[in-house]
């Protein structure tokens, strides 16, 4: 049996992380624990735990410095039920597709990101939102774009003495009237399903009804969810009206490197991702 700490303050938490690292026993961070236990079925539980669920920090997703903050302990249910502008519609849609309600009530948005599963439903949305991860440690704070935060299957740049204190999303508090977002998830059943592929799109239009900016991200089709940069460039300036999906070309998905597994073949994933991207775009301009 390992040791267990449940600090009230962030400072205390960061000190514990530093100490664990110094002693060669880095602490495992637990919040909702919904990824923690499933990874340990049939295994001996002897890690040192830092339970951050007791931090006296707000779980409220709230405006901050002209943008938005998703704090460390915000759950998917908190997100799904928060009054947020259309910018977050995609992320909120993802919140409703993660596990079942039992998981949504406990799992945190940040935990999903830190667990860094290739099939994490939150990550493509955070990519499409151009979100920035705020990392705190006794050494100070640093901010890393989500695109640089997740480095591979189950790996991130988070150091063992760092805590992700939140994720920041830039965007006006009132919500940009022309900005919309969506999320499409493909799975083999209705609930409790790990994505075969998923797509998140944030789309802003200008006053002339053209695409001002599109951000498109695809998950479960590479070790790390990917933004489709060439597609985003191709979309800029196009009329934001039905038919926008036709702009999608197979080469726009070249950055993806899907694998074949029990959920679907690589070929299928690539094709399905393209279909989902097209549909997501059409949905946003319908």
């Amino acid at each position: 049996m390992g040791t267990y700490l449940c600090p009230r303050s962030v400072t205390e938490a960061l000190d514990a992380l530093s100490l664990g690292l110094a002693e060669g026993r880095p602490r495992v961070i637990v919040a909702g624990a919904t990824d923690h236990y499933p990874a340990r079925v049939g295994r001996v539980l002897d890690e040192d735990i830092l339970d951050i669920s007791g931090l006296a920090e707000s779980r409220l997703i709230r405006p901050l410095d002209g943008g938005w903050l998703i704090p460390a302990l915000a759950t998917w249910t908190d997100l799904a039920t928060a009054p947020l502008p259309p910018l977050f519609a995609g992320l909120q849609a993802a919140a409703r597709t993660i596990g079942g309600l039992q998981i949504q009530n406990r799992a945190t948005v940040i935990g999903n990101l830190c667990n860094a599963s290739p099939a994490a439903d939150g990550t493509p949305n955070l990519l499409a939102l151009d979100a920035v991860v705020v990392l705190a440690s006794s050494r100070g704070e640093r901010r890393i774009p989500v695109a640089e935060f997740v480095t591979g299957n189950r790996t991130t740049v988070r150091a063992a003495d760092e805590l992700v204190s939140g994720v920041r999303v830039e965007g006006s508090v009132d919500g940009d009237a022309g900005t919309r977002s969506t999320f499409l998830k493909l799975g083999s059943r209705a609930y409790l399903v790990i994505s075969i592929a998923m797509v998140a799109v944030v789309l802003a239009r200008d006053s002339t009804g053209r695409v001002k900016k599109a951000r498109v991200a695809v998950g479960a089709c590479s070790a790390v969810a990917q933004r489709l940069g060439t597609l985003e460039q191709a979309l800029a300036g196009l009329p934001a009206q039905p038919g926008l999906g036709n702009a999608v070309r197979p080469e726009h998905l070249a950055a993806l490197s899907p694998i074949g597994d029990v959920r679907g073949s690589a070929t299928y994933r690539r094709e399905a991702a393209e279909t989902l991207v097209r549909r997501a775009l059409e949905e946003l301009v319908a």
């Binding site: 637990v30 909702g32 624990a33 919904t34 923690h36 236990y37 499933p38 079925v41 735990i49 339970d51 249910t77 596990g99 079942g100 309600l101 039992q102 998981i103 009530n105 406990r106 409790l192």
Partner: peptide, 23 residues
């Protein structure tokens, strides 16, 4: 014991949760 089946669902402060995933 992995949150996959929901047989252990209880209400924690009113909300349904998988008891197998609650420390």
């Amino acid at each position: 014991n992995a949150g996959d089946c929901g047989a252990c669902t209880v209400r924690l402060d009113g909300r349904q949760v998988c008891a197998c995933l609650v420390p």
